[in-house]
Simulated scan of single mutants.
Amino acid sequence: MRRIDIVANIASGSVGPDAPEIAERLIAEHGVSGKVHAPQPAELVDRLRAVIDSGPDAILVLAGDGTARAAAELAGPDGPLIAPLPGGTMNMLPRALYGERTWQEAMSACLETGEPRMISGGEVGGRLFFVAAILGSPALWATAREAAREGRLDLAAARARRALRRAFTGRLRFVLDGRPKQKAEALTLMCPLVSTALDAEERALEAAALDPSSALDIFRLGFNAARGQWREDPSVSVGRCRTGRVWAGGRIPAILDGEPARFDPQVSIRFRPKAFRALVPPE
């Protein structure tokens, strides 16, 4: 590769102010020509867009889940290779691609033996995800988590109370691949990248409808999930889907690859077989 750009958010999770200097040293050690960008958080997306438009061979993104998802979405299947390094707190996409490596280890592996890999994904209301999406009232807990992470405990408590009030009051209706209409408390969509029920090359999403009807059901579902047996829980129905439609009585809360989102009362979903090209070490 002739040119690699690195975009780092030094304010994110596990990045830190010395990350640009470390990244520059790593690319020099591997004999790669590159440039490190460290924009302010409010300028991240605009800088990513400018870097992608400039046409590097690859872009290494050192930031949180939202920025990793945005970079992959902006690049698309025809743009430069994207390496979403683990720089956030949850690191959903980086963990799916690089396992439990630190960002320095993942970066070194990409520079030494990285190769292109086409990544599939899903789309909800025109927005992409590459690991998993959750639609429905359980997604409201993500906004409480974000407030707590920012140190706004009063706002976190208020959002947690709101999420608790919304439980069991706003069920979703949905149709997947033309099958009969279903109702559930939440709908989870998992990409082949992470689903243990799908082959990595399968051209579909795994769809799981979660419909606990009481606190006891939620406890049992949580217990089964901890044992890795959530698919066998009686409140869960699992299938595959390529397209679908979801609707509710009001705006639909959601989580896309760990980041909160909100959609109109009616939204479409679909599988994207070619979402973006990742730079990854050989499997």
Rank of each mutant, 00 (worst) to 15 (best):
D5S: 15
L85S: 03
L111I: 02
E29A: 15
R171G: 13
A83F: 14
A209F: 02
M1K: 04
S54R: 13
R242G: 13
T143G: 00
V7D: 00
P265V: 11
E185K: 00
P41I: 09
R166Y: 02
L256S: 02
L93S: 07
A163M: 07
T188I: 12
A204L: 08
R227S: 01
D211Q: 03
R159Y: 10
D57W: 14
R145F: 03
I218T: 02
D233S: 12
A139C: 03
I252K: 04
W230H: 14
P273F: 03
Q182D: 05
E283I: 04
G31F: 09
P84M: 10
D233T: 10
A109M: 08
V7A: 05
P180S: 06
E206I: 01
R277I: 01
T102N: 09
A142K: 11
L216C: 00
R251L: 03
P39V: 09
T243E: 15
E24P: 01
D78P: 01
G79S: 13
D78H: 13
A147W: 03
G87V: 13
G16I: 01
T67N: 01
L279Y: 04
A109T: 07
L81H: 08
M90R: 11
D199Q: 14
E105F: 12
L216F: 08
R277A: 11
V36P: 14
V236A: 08
A109G: 07
A68L: 09
Q40E: 14
A204E: 11
A19M: 12
D65F: 10
G13Q: 06
A158G: 15
R117V: 09
L74D: 02
A204Y: 05
C191H: 11
D57E: 15
R159V: 00
V32W: 06
D177I: 07
A28M: 07
A160N: 06
I255F: 10
Q229A: 14
A28Q: 11
K274M: 08
F130V: 11
R171I: 02
R227N: 00
P116K: 10
R242L: 02
R227W: 09
V238C: 13
S237L: 10
P20R: 12
E105Q: 13
G258R: 07
A156E: 07
V45E: 14
E73L: 00
R270N: 08
P39W: 13
E232R: 15
Q40G: 08
W141G: 14
A156N: 07
L279G: 03
S213V: 12
A163P: 13
A72W: 09
P180R: 04
E29N: 12
L140S: 00
R117W: 02
A70N: 12
A71L: 05
G99F: 13
R152G: 01
D257T: 10
V124K: 12
A204C: 13
A215Q: 12
L111V: 04
L81C: 08
R240T: 14
S33G: 11
I269E: 01
R240E: 12
G16L: 07
T113M: 10
F219L: 15
L60T: 03
V124P: 10
R101C: 10
P273V: 05
G34A: 05
G31V: 05
L135C: 01
L26W: 09
A58M: 03
A71R: 09
P281A: 04
R95G: 01
L198I: 04
G122V: 10
R220H: 12
A167G: 01
A142G: 00
P192D: 05
R277F: 05
E123I: 00
G126E: 03
R270C: 09
E259Y: 07
